[in-house]
Design a binder for these strands. Structure first.
Length: 424
RNA sequence: GUGGCUGUAGCUCAGUCGGUUAGAGCGCCAGGUUGUGGCCCUGGAGGUCGGGGGUUCAAAACCCCUCAGCCACCCCA
């Protein structure tokens, strides 16, 4: 082999793509019902876009971006997430000047992060995501969570775990950050090296460290909930109220923290145990400061990103059956060179009438052609040899029932339509 | 980025203590049936034993490096 695919990437063959197309069609249908419209943006953006929105000191920006300089000296980055690009488009396409909210979705966007690969974690993966710009209404937070839930159940998933938390607004977050520093300050030396860095750069992340000694140091720490300002508490309460009314099961997880700086107030994750350590299939929340940080007027927003490879892994693990390559409607078996142009014409006639039709191009014996048609699989096999050509009558074999009928060659195309009308 | 496990045919896997020409099942191709699929039978193709280096009379096996996959961490979808 001359080439190998780069580490942490995946190919999709004709066996795989029907499954992707299926997920995409379900996603589109959900978005249609919820009133969202599709957007497309370039796979790379100015590096600064992600630095400003995702955050300078986040893991993603610090060490996971595919950043390069183009021939004009610009620093560009393959997008490591979708929301920032959606926000950029929102401003650049002047959607902020149109009627709000702007309800946008993106489908199968390639997302790039330089990470150590394992099952459910790739360097290029694909996300279905939804973003709603312009409304601060907690109803939209609930709508977004419901949408993700609806999509996942529509493709056949149950046993989902929805985690919910609030990260507060900049004011209450500031207060909590101070409280964290106060709590950890005296015991700073006992923290793991990662947490010592977090203490300096991003104290909120101290909360979900899994190192045992750091866990112990958490005792006596007031939960973030205590620091939420009245407005943020009210917001969270309303989101929960809507979820409750809609019958969405979730659990409050006070230690749930998202790794991107743009999140404010509502954050949530949907996970599934079939996935192992990388168990989060969907993550999202509210990002009221994002548009402003891009230079636009203050504009609230909420959204989610959903990993399609991880979803496919869960579905496979759970034994949910997904579409595979479609069968052939008719395979035309040819006997001898002299019938081939007639056979080709016939196959073309089928195709132009919307049938999936094929014929032998491997110079196979009749028997081998029959075996090939069987394995394809083909619903019908039409046999065309010198005798049929002379008599203008062809046998058409139903490969499921094994029955065969003689049909006039000129009626061969109509025959399939007739049979499907009858319901065979 | 850290620690660990695993790489043998297209796929799933055997391969004894380091010993001659590396095997099986499935899949693929052809034939048994010179014009009829599935079942059965026969035959065939297909291998840099992940790659490179080393130890040895001899390496798929032992050692080192490297690449890839997987597991956990970190982080995330």
């Amino acid at each position: 082999m001359i080439t190998k695919r780069p580490r942490g990437t995946a190919d999709a063959t004709p066996t795989d793509t029907p499954k992707w197309q299926y997920l995409e069609s379900v996603a589109r249908e959900i978005c249609r019902c919820y009133g969202y419209g599709e957007i497309r943006t370039p796979v790379f953006e100015h590096t600064e876009l992600f630095q400003r929105t995702v955050g300078e000191f986040t893991d993603v920006v610090e060490k996971e971006m595919y950043t390069f300089e183009d021939r004009g000296g610009r620093s560009l980055t393959l997008r490591p997430e979708g929301t920032a690009a959606a926000g950029r488009l929102f401003l650049e396409a002047h959607l902020d000047a149109a009627a709000l909210p702007a309800k946008l979705y993106y489908l199968s966007w390639p997302i790039f992060r330089y990470e150590r690969p394992q099952a459910g974690r790739l360097r290029q993966h694909h996300q279905f995501g939804v973003e709603c710009f312009g409304s601060a209404d907690p109803l939209v937070d609930a709508e977004i969570i419901t949408m993700a839930q609806d999509f996942l159940s529509a493709v056949g998933l149950a046993d989902l775990r929805v985690g919910l938390n609030s990260m507060g607004c900049p004011e209450c977050r500031h207060a909590y950050r101070a409280a964290l520093r106060e709590h950890y300050g005296p015991r700073r030396e006992k923290l793991c090296p990662d947490c010592q860095r977090r203490y300096e750069q991003n104290p909120l992340r101290l909360l979900d460290c899994k190192v045992e000694t750091c866990q112990e140091l958490k005792s006596g720490l007031p939960p973030m909930g205590d620091f939420l300002c009245p407005a943020c508490q009210e917001h969270l309460k309303k989101v929960e109220g809507y979820l409750h009314e809609l019958g969405i099961r979730y659990h409050r997880d006070p230690s749930l923290v998202r790794g991107f700086d743009y999140y404010t107030r509502t954050v949530f994750e949907i996970s599934h145990q079939a996935l192992g350590a990388q168990d989060v299939v969907c993550g999202g929340g509210r990002y009221d400061g994002l548009v402003e940080s891009l230079g636009g007027d203050p504009t609230p927003g909420v959204g989610f990103g959903l990993g399609l490879e991880r979803l496919l892994l869960i579905l496979e693990e759970e034994g949910v059956s997904l579409p595979s390559a479609p069968p052939l409607d008719v395979f035309v078996v040819t006997i001898g060179e002299e019938v081939r142009s007639t056979a080709f014409g016939l196959v073309q006639a089928y195709r132009r009438n919307g049938w999936r039709a094929d014929l032998d191009v491997m110079d196979r014996s009749m028997r081998a052609q029959m075996r090939f048609a069987d394995k394809y699989p083909a619903r019908y096999v039409l046999i065309l040899g010198p005798d049929e050509l002379a008599g203008q009558q062809v046998p058409i074999r139903n490969m499921v029932s094994g029955t065969e009928e003689k049909v006039a060659l000129k009626d061969a195309v109509g025959y399939l339509a007739e049979q499907s009308r009858v319901g065979t």
